[in-house]
Nucleic acid binder design. Structure first.
Lengths: 114, 114
DNA sequence: ATATATCTTCTACAATGTAGAATAAATAAT
DNA sequence: ATTATTTATTCTACATTGTAGAAGATATAT
């Protein structure tokens, strides 16, 4: 049980995207996942800065991938959330969920209400 | 439809507390609501600074209450979320919900999964 | 070699988060 | 009427997180 440090809102979105994407997670896909699913603009600078900070805190790990791009371009840096990061994400999600449930209305597909 | 400006994580908790508390919302009760329900320490300074900023942005309104305390003490400042603030809160909740749903597990009472 | 495509890093600043001391303003006690 | 006590807000100072866009790196295509 590591120390809880209160993730920021954007950090939460990024960590959630990492969980969703699994092995496919790198800059471009993470950005697209958040923009599409959360309906929110994401600048590249904001994304990488946040990923870097999350890595410094030990919540994610990264490795530079093989240069297997199909049409040229720099190699991808793949990101993966680690146990510590998942733990923080769960805590933040639980706190937010407890505060937000029942005060909708939101679409049925969201199902935040208890 | 006013401009969306991406609420911070703590701002979301505070606005949600205002919705929950309704007319009973003032410093002490807001703080207690977040500490109990979100399971998170809240310093008085952090809370009032955030309330002040939310008011500046037009998301909440406040008024100093009558001096009807039963055992002395300064008058309360009552806070109320306004339509603009509720709109932002809903957007943030929707974005977070869409990213977080299905990646639990969380307690059944949370029901974040779709 | 040079162009083009893909992706990450850097720089600089704005906004949000945080804690604790200080202050204010009411009633209660002497 | 002073002083103590209680309740609550405001102030001060700084740390952390959020943000955008330019710059740089590195691959293939021409």
């Amino acid at each position: 049980m590591s120390k809880t440090k209160n993730l920021g809102e954007f950090e939460i979105l990024v960590l959630a995207a990492l969980v969703r994407l699994g092995a496919d997670a790198y800059g471009v896909t993470i950005r697209r996942e958040i923009e599409e699913r959360a309906g929110r603009d994401v600048s590249v600078g904001a994304l990488y800065a946040t990923l870097s900070r999350l890595e410094q805190k030990g919540y994610v790990s990264s490795r530079v991938g093989e240069a297997t791009a199909e049409r040229g371009g720099r190699a991808k840096r793949h990101y993966i959330i680690n146990a510590n990061g998942k733990e923080q994400l769960d805590k933040s999600a639980l706190a937010l969920g407890n505060m937000l449930k029942g005060i909708g209305p939101w679409p049925k597909t969201l199902n935040l209400q208890a």
